[in-house]
Each structure stands twice: as structure tokens, then as C-alpha cells.
Design a protein around this nucleic acid. Structure first.
Length: 858
RNA sequence: GGGCGGUUAGCUCAGUGGUAGAGCACCGGCUUUACACGCCGGCUGUCACAGGUUCGAGUCCUGUACCGCCCACCA
């Protein structure tokens, strides 16, 4: 800011500046003043909009959240100071299994979707031993009630951390608006044939009893064992297969080997008989069979793994399913249609020992049976192998045939790759994860879950006269009716009494995958459907901040939905945060028991101190949890208080900035501002902090120390005026450079002498700084930088005091380096902390100042 | 098996072809009138390894090793 404007405000300094209490003071003030309120009276290009990740409120916030949300806030504050109207909403992810589990335990209830809504229901005071069954709407009410309390605690923490969120723009992924967006988008996809229903083998969690999507899988290395099993050949003899899942022998529908495998070529087209159950199954050829694995020939079961599904589909095999949704083997009447056996009595006798056992228990049992029957060759050979798990599950996934909703995504692959290319990634290499995922998509997106707390599918089905549900004839509501819950709401033309009756209707029992709703966060937060004016000003958004492990889920799904609904990207930039690692280099997480309460950290180190540590983490880079860095940040904040106090405590006289040291410092500062702005534009906030901090410490330790005597008036009034004015110009710019990182201390110091909030002040420009000295002063920069270097040398002379002074100066004060210092010589002579030693020998120094400059350096 | 990062001081990490850096930790000195929550100084390096390009490589290229993450078809 120009010198003249710096003169316009009175300076009010506290006796003893301190960080304590700044969070409470300024969060209240910012709220009262609406400092971070989004002003929608701006066109799209004047807006910077952020698709804030909605944290899962049923969990607790941990230091990883503080880390990544600080990154977003730093960017938001920068953009705001650059003059953008920043749209920075906050969402709460309260939709999904984690909340559901928490509510069940907290209130002692269980959701039963067949029950009618009870408006007068209140949960028991203390959860009873027996869970109380409640309707889905009642269950959702309890979820909402509990999450509201969680959200309050989260908001308090976020405010204390200093997030510059506009708290009038909040949403929850289960709230009415989100449900309406989610259901509307679903119905539109349904009408366009992009959402479809299919009865098909699906990955299934037997504990949660729900389908899960490809994106929610993880592989875990599990102990297992190869079992070599004999199948009887029709013409006599046996064929041996290896399997890790012998309990699925009753579900075996074929054997398969590679078409080029000479060992098994003679068997293709023949039948073999399964052990124990004596079922005749064909031997087939398929290229997915690996001759190197096991005995080279595999058993196909319905269904042991995803390869089984592929074989089953491509080889047109029948289904013989034994695993139930709860993971136990279902009762089977051997000899009945589909379960034909050469010896049904023997099959039944064997199977009766397995029925209703879990897969793991059935495996143990069948091994005994196979051993007794002589069909087990040798003993099981232990191995460890990757097994697919639901990421939140405890038991391996099964594959169960069920009716599920899907969104077509495979057909979109090329467009999705193009969108990923179009998106600006920070850091850029994160785009590979997305491309990797899109290229590896193996099926359409299964979006239905057999759970309760979520957005229901807004669909009913007519029931035929014979009482069967007609899934082909869906009944869907008008968009204007949304959101609806088909388990309690009644379709037009029906009455409640016709629910689940012949010639009546049935509601779709499922809910949507949590990503099916959270993939619409830009639409939910931006007011799609409800506030077209707002939506037009914020969408597509500017920034999606998120962590890298959910690129394949949240980021991917959001890109899919925007491509479908808006034919665009949902945002132009994706900023990917790394993880916080504990001292063992492991990701900090609740399960590992190494999580530190964020509020305790903020109280110990101050929000600015914690933010300093967080903002030092570069985009995408995993960062060690390091309280030491928080202490450093806290010290920096304290230093800012004290340096500002020094600059402001005797801020007159003021006047033209004439001294070379002052002019050089400001020119260097203008270059810092130029670089910082470019780095911030490139989302490299950590570098801005690092370089600003470096400049600031030198500003304190070198510049302020050198000009101290001059500003106190030891020389001329003009010299003092030059120093005072330069310090004010520098302080103004430095405070604004620090403001995105250290919002509390910056605001505190700003309030001593500047009007308004620093967070609404204009981001500094190189021009405003050099304007104060009438343009860049390159010669003065040399004085300034040489002064910094020379000061270091001079300090060493002092420290080496025991050596002969002449030798020390010869070593340290390289004459050629000192030439540009002559204009600052009086500052050097006056600098208190070096005066005592060095300038006893001022004669020597003056001699060195007089050395001519070598040609090579001129 | 495929992909992506990383490897620099005891620790955490910057380093954008041109004399190896910062902070922390450690050791020593200093009540110095903004700050002892401060200031000053010191110690600490086969820049993972091997080749190559270049006048010059921590930096660019090739390969190897190790660490981490993402993905993949569980016989």
C-alpha cells in the first residue's frame, strides 16, 4: 500500500503482545463481521468455488483432517485476498454405514424397513440389551439427531483452526436437499437408460449383508491352503485340481483348463464327477485358465471369485449357489432339479454336515470328509494369498446373486479418460492414479446397498395378483415430489393399505451407495435444482481438495456424475493431500491407536502453530507428524508480534525512503511477492510459506538490527524517516503474505494499525512496494544482499574473537564482497550487537570498502 | 505382475545444470532498551548404488537396490 495510505490510521499497540486468546477473539469477530461470507454478486469468473470434502461426522476428527483442511483454507484465503469471491462451503458426511453402526449402538435400536413410521417414537434412555426395532424414517431421524451433535463439535474445531468457511453454506449428505439432488439425478439417469437394474452375481459382505462396489474393495493377504482334490473321469481314472475353497465343491459347475494345455485337451467336452456330491460337470476350455497355477486345471464354482463369474458367463454355465447372504451354506435337497447327483443319498449325507456352517467352518469339515473318502490328495499346503474384502469388513467377500442397481460407466471410459486429462492435478502425477483406475474398470458401478441409513431409491413396484413383485414395471414419482422414502411414502394412485398386498405395490428396499450421493457434492453445495442463480455462479467449481486414497471413489464418481448430468468436469483443479505419518512412517489412523486429539494440539501450539506445520506439507506429499514444527510455527507467530511491535512503536518521523539498505530490502521484498504470487497460483503454498519465512527471519535478524540505531535517530531525521517508512511498507506486505497461513497473528497485528480485516485486504503486489521507492532499485538490492552476507561474516569475526583480528578479517571479510556496502556503512557502524568488536577495527573495514570491484563482478 | 512416488546432516525436510542448504536436536557464548517464547556462533554429508550425457550432475538419461502408496484374475 502506498505510503500515504499507511499514514492514515492511528497505531494502538498492546503492552505485551501474546498469542493466547487470539483464536477466541478473532473467530467471534470474523463471525460477527461476516468476513468470510460468500458475496454472490459476482460473475462466474470473479468467483473461486471449493468443493469441500464433507468429513464423516460419526468418526472423530484427527490430525490428518487438520492437515488437509488447512491446505484448502490457505488456498481459499489467498484467492479471497486476490479479489475472488470465495465460495467455501462445509458439508457433513453422515450418510452411510459408519453412522448407521454408531446409531445402533448409541440408542440400542435396529432398523426394520417393514415397520411403519411412528411419529411419537423416542429412543430408550439407555440402550437395552435387546435392540428396539424401528422404521427406516425413525432410524434416519435418530441418525440425524446424533449427527447434529457431532456436527456442532466439528464446527467448533474448524472455527478454532481458523478455516475461512462460509458457515451459512452447509449441507449434510443425508439432509433433504442432498436426498432431493441424489434422487433427482438418479431418476434422470433411469429415464435415460443409464441407471438399470440387474439380477446378477455381486460382491457381497456377509456381515453387513449388502452388496459392495468395486471401488470399496481391498485385497488383504490371508493365510489359506491349496487342497488337491480328485474328480472322477467318466471313462475311469481321475483328474486332480487345486483349490483354496473346497467347501464350494457342491457349487462346482465345471472344470476349466487353458485351450492349448496338452495335458487336458483330451478332457475338453467330457464330463467328470465331483467328489462327495457325485455331480456330473463338464470340462471346458478358457484362456483365463493358467497352466502354471496349481495343477493347471481349475474348478468353476458359483461363485468362488470374480474369475468364476467370468467363466460362468462366458461359458454359459448353470448356477448352483450354496452361500447365503449371511455367509452360511444354505439347505439343499440333493436330487431335486438343478441339484442332480449320481448318488443323491450320499450327496445329502455329506452336505448335511456342512449346511448352515460358515464358509470357514464348512471348509474344515469338508476337508475331513474328503480325507475319509480318499478324494483329498496329500494334505492341504498352506499359502498366503490376496483375498478380497470390503474395506470396512472383517470377513472375505462372497459373490451372491441378487437384484442390484447399476450406473453405466464402462461405456463412458474414453470420455472419463479425456476428462481426467483436462483436469489440472496438484501434484500433476496424481493423475496416473485416476487413469490407472479408469483403465482397470471391470464393470458398471453397482450403486445399491442393502442397508437403511442412506438415500432410498425413489422407486416402487406393482405387485401382481399372484403376489409376486413385478420388477419390470417400475412406479416412479414426479420430480416435484422428491425426496421420498418408498418404504413409507405411497405412490400416486395407491393407498397405504395396498403396501405389500396382491395387486398393490412394494417399495424398493435398498439405499444408494454413499458415493452415489457424495458424487454430487458440487451440485448439492452449489444449489443445483434449488438455486439456479447460485449454481450458475459456482459451477463447475474451481477446486476439489481431497486425499489420494479416494481418487478411485469420490473423485472418480464425481467426474462420472458431472459428465452425465452437465457434460463437463465438476471442477477445474484437484488438489491432492498426502497423509500424516506417525513416527513409524505409518499412516495415522484411529485403528492404530496413535491419533492425537486435534483440539489438544491447537491449544498447546496455537492454531497458527499447527497451521504452520500443516502448510509446510507440500501438495500430495505424506508428512510426518511433528510437534517440533508446530513449536517452530508458534515461535514464528510470536516473532511476528514482536517485530511488528518494534516497527510500530516509534513509527515517526516518516518520509521518503532514501537509504540504500531500505530501498534494497523493499526491492527484494517485491520480488518475494512476485514469486509467491506465482507459486500460490500453482498451488505450491508450502514454498510460499518457506520463502516468506526465510525473508522474514532475515528481515528481523539482519535488516531490523542494522537499521535499529538509525531509526532511533542516531543519525539524521531523514535517515530515521526512511527506516520507519520502509518498515511500515514491509510490515504491511509481510502480514498479508503470512495471512493465509497464520490468520490469527496476522489479523491481530493488522488490527493494531490498519483498518478492516487483513483477510479482506488485497494480496500484495510487487508494484505497490516498489512504488514506495519510485521503482525497483537494483543497486540497492546489491547493498541489501551483500549486507546480509557481510553481516554473517562480521558475526563470525566476533565469534572468533580469540584469533588475531587482522587474520579474522582477512579470512572473513572478503574485500570484493564488501564494496557495495559502502552506502550502508553507517548502519554497520551503528548496529549495536557488532559495534563492540568489529568497529573497534573500523579502519580495517574502511580499507576493504575501498577495494576496487573486479571486472568479472561489475 | 502393472503403475506412481521417495532415498540429501542424528531427526524432519528444501534444493528449478554452476562453490551442498534450512529448521530441530546437540555443544558453546550473550540480560542486547521489539522479542530469553530472544540473540550469536559451532559441530554434523560417500546427496542409496552403478553407468551415461555435459566444460560442469544432488539436479538430466539408463539400469539396480530398498521404502511407501495405488491397481491387478482369491484356482
Amino acid at each position: 500500500q502506498a505510503l500515504s495510505t499507511l499514514d492514515q490510521h492511528p497505531i494502538t499497540l498492546p503492552e505485551k503482545p501474546a498469542l493466547e486468546g487470539l483464536e477466541a477473539k478473532w473467530t467471534a469477530r470474523w463471525e460477527a463481521d461476516g468476513t468470510y461470507r460468500f458475496d454472490r454478486n459476482h460473475a462466474r469468473h470473479e468467483v473461486y468455488s471449493i468443493d469441500t470434502p464433507p468429513p464423516t461426522v460419526s468418526g472423530s476428527l484427527h490430525v490428518g483432517h487438520v492437515f488437509s483442511y488447512t491446505h484448502t483454507d490457505v488456498i481459499a484465503r489467498f484467492q479471497r485476498m486476490r479479489g475472488k469471491a470465495v465460495f467455501y462451503p462445509m458439508g457433513w458426511d453422515d450418510n452411510g454405514l459408519p453412522t448407521e453402526r454408531r446409531v445402533q449402538n448409541y440408542y440400542g435400536v435396529r432398523c426394520d424397513p417393514s415397520l411403519p413410521y411412528d411419529p411419537s417414537f423416542t429412543p430408550p434412555e439407555t440402550p437395552g440389551k435387546q435392540a428396539v426395532s424401528v422404521s427406516r424414517p425413525n432410524f434416519i431421524e435418530l441418525c440425524t439427531k446424533l449427527t447434529v451433535e457431532d456436527e456442532r463439535a466439528f464446527e467448533h474445531l474448524w472455527r478454532h483452526l481458523g478455516l475461512s468457511v462460509d458457515w451459512s453454506h452447509t449441507y449434510a449428505t443425508i439432509d433433504t436437499r442432498a436426498q432431493r439432488v441424489s434422487q433427482t439425478a438418479f431418476l434422470r439417469l433411469l429415464h435415460r437408460g443409464i441407471a438399470y437394474q440387474l439380477e446378477a452375481p455381486t460382491l457381497w459382505d456377509v456381515d453387513f449383508r449388502t452388496a459392495v462396489a468395486q471401488a470399496e474393495l481391498e485385497d488383504r493377504e490371508q493365510p489359506g491352503a491349496y487342497h488337491r482334490i480328485r474328480f472322477a473321469r467318466a471313462e475311469g481314472g481321475v483328474v486332480e485340481i487345486d483349490t483354496t475353497r473346497p467347501e464350494l465343491i457342491p457349487a462346482c459347475v465345471a472344470l476349466v483348463a487353458h485351450p492349448d494345455d496338452e495335458r487336458y485337451k483330451p478332457l475338453f467336452g467330457t464330463e467328470v464327477t465331483t467328489p462327495l456330491f457325485t455331480v456330473a460337470v463338464p470340462v471346458k476350455a478358457h484362456t483365463l485358465a493358467d497352466p502354471e497355477k496349481g495343477s493347471g486345471i481349475a474348478m468353476i464354482c458359483t461363485f468362488g471369485d470374480l474369475t468364476d463369474v467370468t467363466w460362468w458367463r462366458e461359458l454359459s454355465l448353470p448356477v448352483r449357489a450354496v452361500v447365503q447372504p449371511n455367509g452360511a451354506l444354505r439347505p439343499v435337497a440333493w436330487g431335486s432339479p438343478g441339484w442332480e447327483s449320481r448318488d443323491a443319498a450320499r450327496a445329502q449325507a455329506a452336505y448335511d454336515q456342512l449346511v448352515n456352517l460358515s464358509a470357514a467352518k464348512a471348509r474344515t469339515r469338508i476337508v475331513d470328509l474328503l480325507r475319509e473318502s480318499g478324494d483329498l490328495v496329500g494334505e492341504p499346503r498352506p499359502i498366503t494369498h490376496p483375498v478380497k474384502f470390503y474395506e470396512k469388513g472383517d470377513r472375505p467377500l462372497e459373490i451372491i446373486t441378487s437384484r442390484q442397481w447399476f450406473f453405466k460407466t464402462i461405456e463412458l471410459r474414453d470420455e472419463l479418460l479425456a476428462r481426467g486429462h483436462e483436469l489440472a492435478w496438484h501434484p500433476d502425477y496424481m493423475r496416473h492414479r485416476y487413469e490407472n483406475w479408469v483403465n482397470g474398470l471391470s464393470g458398471d458401478w453397482c450403486v445399491s446397498r442393502q442397508r437403511f441409513f442412506g438415500v432410498p431409491f425413489p422407486v416402487w413396484y406393482p405387485i401382481k395378483g399372484d403376489g409376486t413383485v413385478d420388477y419390470e414395471k417400475r412406479i416412479v414419482p414426479e420430480e416435484a415430489r422428491l425426496p421420498i422414502d418408498p418404504s413409507t411414502d405411497v405412490p400416486d394412485g395407491y393407498t397405504q393399505s395396498q403396501r405389500n398386498q396382491p395387486n398393490g405395490f412394494a417399495g424398493d428396499p435398498d439405499i444408494m451407495d454413499t458415493w452415489a450421493t457424495s458424487s454430487l457434492t458440487p451440485q448439492i453445495a452449489g444449489g443445483w435444482l434449488t438455486d439456479a442463480d447460485l449454481f450458475g455462479r459456482v459451477f463447475p467449481m474451481d477446486l476439489r481438495p481431497q486425499s489420494h486414497e479416494i481418487i478411485r471413489t469420490w473423485l472418480f464418481a464425481t467426474v462420472v456424475r458431472a459428465a452425465r448430468e452437465h457434460k463437463s468436469l465438476p471442477w477445474t483443479n484437484a488438489a491432492i493431500s498426502g497423509w500424516v505419518l506417525d513416527p513409524d512412517r505409518k499412516k495415522m489412523s484411529k485403528s492404530k491407536g496413535n491419533v492425537i486429539t486435534p483440539m489438544a494440539l491447537l491449544e498447546e501450539h496455537g492454531s497458527d502453530g499447527v497451521r504452520y506445520w500443516a502448510a509446510s506439507g507440500r501438495p500430495g506429499t505424506d508428512t510426518a507428524f511433528e510437534p517440533g514444527q508446530m513449536k517452530v510455527g508458534r515461535r514464528l507467530a510470536i516473532k511476528i508480534l514482536n517485530a511488528a511491535k518494534f516497527a510500530l512503536m516509534q513509527a515517526s518521523p516518516r518520509g521518503a525512503i532514501t537509504e540504500p539498505l531500505d530501498r534494497g530490502m523493499l526491492t527484494a521484498l517485491s520480488r518475494l511477492v512476485r514469486n509467491s504470487t506465482a507459486e500460490f497460483e500453482a498451488y505450491d503454498y508450502a514454498r510460499v510459506l518457506e520463502q516468506t519465512e526465510r525473508f522474514f527471519w532475515s528481515f528481523c535478524d539482519d535488516y531490523l538490527e542494522l537499521v535499529k540505531a538509525r531509526r532511533y535517530g542516531d543519525f539524521t531525521a531523514e535517515g530515521a524517516a526512511s527506516a520507519n517508512s520502509a518498515m511500515l511498507v514491509a510490515l504491511s506486505a509481510l502480514l498479508r503474505l503470512f495471512a493465509p497461513f497464520l490468520p490469527f497473528v496476522s489479523e491481530e497485528v493488522w488490527s493494531w494499525w490498519r483498518p478492516g480485516s487483513v483477510h479482506r485486504a488485497a494480496w500484495p503486489t510487487p508494484e505497490e512496494i516498489v512504488d514506495a521507492i519510485g521503482g525497483e532499485d537494483e543497486a540497492a538490492v546489491q547493498v541489501f544482499t551483500q549486507a546480509q552476507a557481510a553481516l554473517g561474516e562480521v558475526r563470525r569475526i566476533k565469534a572468533i574473537g580469540k584469533r588475531p583480528v587482522k587474520a579474522a578479517i582477512d579470512r572473513a571479510v572478503l574485500p570484493k564482497q564488501f564494496l557495495p556496502l559502502e552506502p550502508a556503512a553507517h548502519d554497520f557502524r551503528a548496529a549495536a550487537h557488532i559495534r563492540d568488536l568489529v568497529f573497534e577495527h573500523v579502519e580495517e573495514l574502511q580499507l576493504t570498502f575501498a577495494e576496487p570491484v573486479p571486472e568479472s563482478r561489475a
